[in-house]
């Protein structure tokens, strides 16, 4: 499987990338940057898509990685600022508190579990779909989901 021309891919798959980034980051500006970065990265390194999954699955994964990375970077910056007694102004979310809560959980989870949390809680993917996107076995997904639920429980 090969990538279609990038302009066509942008029209057909860009909406999903943008929506996904928006869901994860809660910021239209950040989401549009992720959208841009994803397609610019594909132009720079098209070999990233190896054809092991559908293009949409691949883009879901790529967008998730980049959005989670940005959330973690934000958390790091906030901690740094707090250490220097200069906390950032509190941001009041315009969206539901559930998504804001999920975002906080994602920031605190290890990378692998944060990704699973997105697929499991936010996307409500089946374990088969998660296995495809993570390129691992369904059994491994089952274990990851169990670990995730355990960690979320303990955090409450």
């Amino acid at each position: 499987m090969t990538l279609p021309p990038l302009d066509r891919l942008y029209q057909s798959h860009g909406p999903a990338v943008l929506r996904r980034a928006r869901q994860l980051l809660g910021s239209e500006a950040d989401a549009r940057e992720i959208l841009h970065d994803v397609f610019a990265s594909l132009l720079e390194k098209p070999e990233q898509f190896a054809g092991h999954s559908s293009i949409m699955t691949f883009l879901y994964s790529m967008t998730t990685h980049r959005a989670l990375s940005r959330l973690r970077n934000e958390r790091g910056r906030r901690q740094l600022l707090e250490r220097h007694h200069d906390p950032e102004p509190r941001v009041v979310s315009h969206e539901g508190s559930a998504r804001a809560e999920l975002r906080e959980v994602l920031r605190s989870l290890p990378e692998e579990l944060a990704e699973v949390a997105v697929y499991h809680y936010l996307d409500e993917m089946t374990q088969d779909e998660i296995a495809e996107i993570l390129t691992c076995s369904r059994q491994w997904v089952t274990k990851l989901v169990a670990r995730l639920k355990d960690q979320v429980e303990r955090a409450r």
């Binding site: 990038l6 029209q11 909406p15 943008l18 959208l35 397609f39």
Partner: peptide, 30 residues
């Protein structure tokens, strides 16, 4: 909504793609 107001991308044009050694299939009209 995306089709009507999709943000434009800042991507290099066809010659840039070719010079970077990327497949011509990606030299789209973004």
């Amino acid at each position: 909504s995306f089709a009507e107001s999709a943000p434009a991308l800042d991507l290099p044009g066809p010659q840039g793609v070719a010079s970077a050694g990327l497949p011509a299939v990606l030299a789209g009209t973004v």
